[in-house]
């Protein structure tokens, strides 16, 4: 929308350049982010051969053992528990918000869900440690710090996200598809299950992928409720450790004060892995959303 035929006044040009610099800065931020992570990771691999990450099964940086599997297992375990808990609840809540709730209830429900989505990790971690774990400990034989409570509370954090994103996807389903289903005599249940959900499935898959990325990156809930005990295995009743809790743990030990060592640099390898995982999941989510416009199932 440029006015042609007129010379751009210098003030206009200066403003244009200043604004462009702002946009450029976001690229600088991501370049800097990658540079920091890659630089420290490369120095880490100067001390520790990359093969040791895959060949070892013990993560004990203080003892010079850098087997990644325990951290990956812990991340996978807590994330899967969280997503597994949040997906059914989130989709049902999304159906309610988008398809069933009276407008007045919806106007209250959406801000309330966003309020829950804004509860900080430390508060949710407290909830896991001091409310959920004591409630479940007896019947399930949980230890005080355990992956199950952390995972379930990650799920609580993810429900609003899946519900809001899922509801948005369902809102994008054209109204006439629903009307056609009703006109053919379908009940509300049939319309939702056979028309709305299949049409919105790409949006729901995208919500699932974004929630997974968010769950894998959650730090405080796991650090508080599951501790930081790297163990290879998927026993949810026991403490665990994740990529994020290691980053937190090591930077609190050596971060700002002592000279960098291999353990400190390993945090950047974990950071790089976390960025890779979130970006891959994001790209997949964007692809799921962009691949085709909403279309009726055949």
């Amino acid at each position: 929308m440029q006015v042609r035929g007129l010379a751009t006044p210098p003030r206009e040009r200066a403003i244009h350049i200043a604004l462009m610099a702002g946009a450029g800065l976001t690229i600088v931020v991501s370049a800097g982010l990658l540079a920091v992570l890659v630089f420290e990771s490369v120095r880490f691999f100067g001390d520790v051969a990359p093969s040791r990450l895959a060949a070892d099964t013990v993560w004990a940086p203080a003892a010079g053992r850098f087997g990644l599997w325990p951290l990956l297992a812990g991340t996978l375990l807590t994330t899967l528990i969280g997503v597994g808990f949040a997906l059914p609840l989130g989709v049902l809540a999304a159906i309610y918000v988008s398809e069933l709730a009276p407008p007045r209830v919806r106007r209250l429900l959406v801000p309330a869900l966003e309020l829950l989505a804004g509860v900080p990790g430390v508060v949710l971690g407290y909830f896991a440690l001091h409310a959920l774990t004591p409630a479940l400990a007896q019947s399930l034989g949980l230890s005080r710090l355990n992956a199950l409570s952390a995972g379930l509370v990650i799920g609580v954090m993810l429900v609003p996200m899946i519900a809001v994103l899922g509801a948005n996807a369902m809102q994008r389903v054209p109204l006439n598809l629903r009307e056609a289903a009703y006109a053919l005599g379908a009940s509300r249940l049939t319309t939702i299950l056979r028309v709305v959900l299949p049409t919105a499935r790409r949006g729901i898959v995208a919500a699932l992928l974004l929630a997974t990325a968010r769950g894998a990156g959650e730090t405080m809930i796991v650090a508080i409720a599951a501790g930081h005990v790297p163990r290879l295995g998927f026993d949810a009743t026991q403490p665990t450790a994740t990529l994020t809790t290691f980053v937190l743990d090591v930077s609190m030990r050596t971060g700002a004060t002592t000279a960098p060592n291999a353990a400190y640099r390993a945090a950047f390898v974990c950071g790089l892995l976390l960025v890779a995982v979130t970006i891959i999941l994001n790209v997949l989510a964007q692809r799921a959303l962009a691949s085709r416009p909403a279309q009726a199932p055949r």
Partner: peptide, 8 residues
């Protein structure tokens, strides 16, 4: 960038 975990 919006999706990068805050700990990173």
């Amino acid at each position: 960038l919006a999706a990068v975990p805050s700990v990173v």
